[in-house]
Write a protein that binds this DNA or RNA. Structure first.
Lengths: 143, 143
DNA sequence: CAGTATCCGCTCTGATACTG
DNA sequence: CAGTATCAGAGCGGATACTG
């Protein structure tokens, strides 16, 4: 990832930030917000995470991603293709065979997505505990 | 989740992965999927990105995040609080003042979120171009 | 100021059926 | 196999009004 953020968590208040979050409180519907919505989409996330370096067929993706409907997978893939993140290759055979793979651009995003998934894996217990604590705390207040 | 059995050969990258995506094609509604949904949520993302190191008040957040309704901000903040990502501090003054800040756990997530946002910023032009190309390509096929 | 409560439209999504 | 088309239902999310 060649974004200039290799320097540690230092981008806080004082440090001159190469990128200031407060500058993208931009209008709804702006480019960044739009892309963020796409990229942070439930199914997009899973598709990109799965298409690591190998290509997968439609039915393979569908099998791997538990709970996705044919329709939503189709829609998601088309969006990702449109955004240049995923490539779609049709093999002229019968029965039809279509392979999906990450584009170079998609591969750069994959790194980030993966770290998000890894974070989730790593901290799921902490979150579960936080939820339990919150719920317990709240149940007391109700009674 | 902890299944050590190696599956189909030559599936992924050669590099021994500390983390294998194929192992979380887990049930819908499982822990990881649930958290991913929360974390990848439109508003959650923006809230976490904004709460960098300083704490913000409700109305400040609302002003910064263009397009969020009072209701959705409220709901989002409560979810994040429940997950232990954001802390809520009520100051007993009039008028009421409530500060929201990242917890230590939330701060670890912030790093990842930030890289996602940075990625978006960095590649927005490429995506815009990909979209334009896709649309043009498609318009031709329609006519 | 910082919310909660209620109503309700509209989108997103899934199920089903059909095509190349 | 790899989709598209169509429809109906659930729930997300906005607008409004009200409270501490």
């Amino acid at each position: 990832m060649e974004d200039g953020t290799s320097k540690s968590p230092g981008y806080c208040c004082e440090t001159a930030p190469d990128f200031d979050v407060r500058q993208w409180d931009v209008r709804e519907g702006c480019e960044v917000r739009q892309i963020l919505d796409r990229v942070a989409d439930k199914w997009s996330l899973l598709v990109i995470a799965l298409l690591d370096c190998e290509s997968l067929r439609f039915s393979q993706l569908r099998r791997e991603i538990d709970g996705v409907s044919q329709r939503m997978l189709s829609v998601t893939l088309r969006q990702l293709e449109r955004d240049g993140l995923v490539s779609r290759t049709v093999h002229p055979v019968v029965p039809p065979r279509v392979d999906y793979a990450l584009t170079p651009l998609g591969r750069t995003l994959h790194e980030t997505i993966k770290s998000l998934v890894t974070w989730t894996e790593t901290h799921q217990r902490e979150i579960a505990e936080a939820r339990a604590a919150y719920d317990a705390r709240h149940e007391m207040m109700d009674s």
